[in-house]
Structures are given as C-alpha cells and as structure tokens.
Amino acid sequence: MTFDPFFFMKGIQGKIGASQGGQSQQQVAYLRQLQREMRVEETLNIPLTELNVIVFDIETTGFYPDQGDQIISIGAIKVKGEKIIENETFYSLVKAEKNVSEEISQLTGLYDTQLQNAPPLSEVLFQFFQFTQDYTLVAHHANHEKIFLQQASWKLYRAPFKHRLVDMSFLYRIAEPDAKLITLEECCEYNGITVNGRHHALNDAKLTAKLWSIYVNKLHQKGCETLNDLYERYTKV
C-alpha cells in the first residue's frame, strides 16, 4: 500500500447501540452518514488554489489522550483556495473532566472556572464536525490533533476519524527545504505574519490559515498544484 502523508485514518471497525456515552442516535447517525459520503481520494487532484479546507487547532491538557489528557478548546476557520473566509469560524471551550494544571492554564489562559461550565466534548465535537462537513482539514504539526480526534471519535461515537488531514509541516518542508521551520512562531515570523494570542485555539487556527494561504501560492510557483503533487515531491525530499 502506498503511504500518503496527507491522509491520516484510524481504521477501526465496530458496532454501537442506540446510545453511546450519552450521545444521541441522531448524532451518531449524522457522523456515520458524513463518513459514508466522504470522497477523500478525490481531493488529491483538486488544485490547491480551488481546494476548500478547514484550518483548525485544539488546545489540550497534555499530549496523551490515552493517559487522560483532554481537549479543552477547539478553533477553526474556513479557507477557499487562497482566500480566508474571516466570518466563517468555529470556536468552543470544552468541559474539563478533571482539574487543569496551573502550567496549562498559564499557557492557554483557560482555567477550571471557565471549563467547568463549558459544553461536553461530545457536543462540541459534534458541532465541530457539522462545521467541517467533508472539507479537508489542515493543522500545524497535525499529529497532535490527529491522535486526539481519533481517540475522541472512537470513544464517543464508536466511529473512525476519516477526514483527510493535511499537516502544514509537509508544505514548509517542500516549499522552504532549507529554512528548518518548526514552531508556529518561527513559521509566522519567517513569513512576516504578526503573532498575537498564541495558544488560543481560534487565534492559532487563523495564524495557520494565513500560512496555508501563503504556501498555496509558494507551492503553485514551484509547480505543486495539488495534494498529489505535494505527495510526489515529499517522497523525493
């Protein structure tokens, strides 16, 4: 099987009953139908200048959902080709199941008093998937987002996470092979983007969206027109 670095998928199969962890039949049915209708392979050959994406970010209490770390906020914004759709955004806090450490609160600005009154992850994730529909997802160093969404989707809905998820780091590596860009701050500063409000999920999503818009243009100039072109270039890096 050919490895596609732009498509992360958890291939878990299973059946669920009428309700799973408080999730309604309607929610589960919606997500299952959304997954059935996805045409992720078709996105490989859509020009990046025409590809509709959702750029998103999550804030979490750590790096390991299987060890109890949790999502505490999700932010996202729509981008059509190179155009950022400023008025089409998603943002929500997520109810914390346990106390958030002082370190995380200092980093994100999110405290227990805020998170205790937030909606549960099952509700927020369902709303997030309604917002994203079948769009291609984009994130900075997307593996972090991937493992949390995989775990949450299966835990809450007994459903695999099937969206195509593009990691911005692949774009940096192909467009700027000598720049050695790693952090979001480094990538923004390198491209003349002012960094404000870091570690706020929506702010970080907006910063990443600006980078996506810039790199779609840079890659176009290098002859990379589609995700498939990017994949072919990546195998040669």
Rank of each mutant, 00 (worst) to 15 (best):
V124K: 07
D112Y: 01
T136V: 15
L149P: 13
E82M: 15
G81Q: 08
N99D: 12
Y91R: 00
S92D: 00
S122I: 01
V138E: 12
Y172W: 10
L125G: 04
K80C: 05
Q114H: 14
K80A: 11
N87E: 15
Q106S: 14
T89R: 08
L93P: 10
Q127K: 15
S92T: 00
E88C: 03
A76H: 12
G75F: 00
E102D: 14
K78I: 04
H144K: 13
F126E: 08
Q127D: 14
E123M: 11
E82W: 13
L171F: 15
F148R: 04
K155Y: 13
F131S: 04
T113H: 13
K95L: 05
T89K: 13
I85E: 02
H163K: 04
P120Y: 10
I84E: 03
N87C: 09
F128G: 08
D167V: 02
I84L: 06
E103V: 12
E97P: 00
V138Q: 07
L149T: 04
I77F: 08
Q151N: 15
A139C: 09
E123N: 13
K80S: 12
R164G: 07
L156Q: 04
N143C: 10
W154T: 07
N117M: 02
Q151E: 15
T132Y: 12
E88H: 10
F161E: 04
P120V: 11
F131R: 07
L125F: 09
A142N: 08
A96D: 00
K98W: 01
H163E: 10
R164S: 09
Q130V: 07
V79L: 03
S122G: 10
I104S: 14
I77M: 01
F128K: 10
K95W: 06
A175I: 01
E176N: 10
Q116R: 11
L110G: 10
N143M: 13
Y172L: 04
A142K: 13
G81E: 05
Y91L: 00
E82D: 14
G75H: 00
N99K: 10
V79R: 02
Q116G: 06
D167F: 15
D167Q: 12
F128S: 06
A76E: 09
A139T: 06
K80M: 07
K80I: 06
E145T: 02
G109C: 03
D112E: 03
K83N: 09
E88F: 11
K78C: 03
H144F: 12
Y91T: 00
Q116E: 09
F170T: 00
F128N: 05
N143P: 11
L171E: 02
V124T: 03
F131T: 03
V79M: 02
L125V: 01
Y91D: 02
L107I: 04
T89L: 02
K95M: 11
F129H: 13
E97Y: 05
L125A: 06
V100P: 03
L121S: 03
